[in-house]
Amino acid sequence: MDESGDVLRVRDLYKEHGHHESLVRAVDGIDLDVPTGQMLAVMGPSGCGKSTLLHLLGGLERPTDGEVWLAGRRIDTISERGLARLRRRAVGFVFQAFHLVEELSAAENVELPVLLAGGSPRAARRRAALLLERFGLADRARHLPWQLSGGQRQRVAIARAVANRPHVLLADEPTGNLDTTATLDVLRVFEDLRAAGQTLVIVTHDERVAATADRLISMRDGMFVDDTRLAGSTTGRLDGLIRLED
């Protein structure tokens, strides 16, 4: 964490794909500060560069230009090995397609990052059991991914992403493949994490997912076009939402 208390700090970020006539500016000059504990949603039409931005934030891709600071450390210049180490502890990824390891059970999937980070098998098992219990999946721990519903799979993926208590959780369309009930389950898990002080950046095109965030950024053609605080600005009262005739 730097002195400003921002987990993520992005300055003048650019990312280009392709060359010459096929050149695409997926991220086109972005500045961003995400304070610790904030839940940030990024919305925008398909192809506007949301996934690319998320990859840049987590060090999965390198920017063409600009700076990315994660927990007080500049990450766009460090080596591939350094990035891998960073991902082990500082970042958790959640994807639309879940990306669970198919041949490992739910618990084993959650244990994986702990083991990769050098944790003991005992510690890994304990952490996995704890998280699965917390996310309402205690009875699914030994199931293989294909034996789980979409919502359960995504909750396992989230448990895996936070297994090493990352500074920030990056989620790319986490509910894109889910129905309403499963979406609500996943949102409850995010809510739980947020209450525990987890910083979250969620890319989504689902308004109801974005609405749970503290802050909403709208993106278009690789740029931010709107940045709204949702938390604190609402009434918290619900009577405005329905009209009851006398």
Binding site: G58, R81, A84, R85, H99, L100, P113, L116, N164
Partner: peptide, 16 residues
């Protein structure tokens, strides 16, 4: 490939 890519998002280095 997918499994290895997942391992990399979880912090496995290319060397590993």
């Amino acid at each position: 490939r997918p499994t290895m890519a997942i391992a990399r998002t979880l912090g496995a280095t290319p060397g590993q």
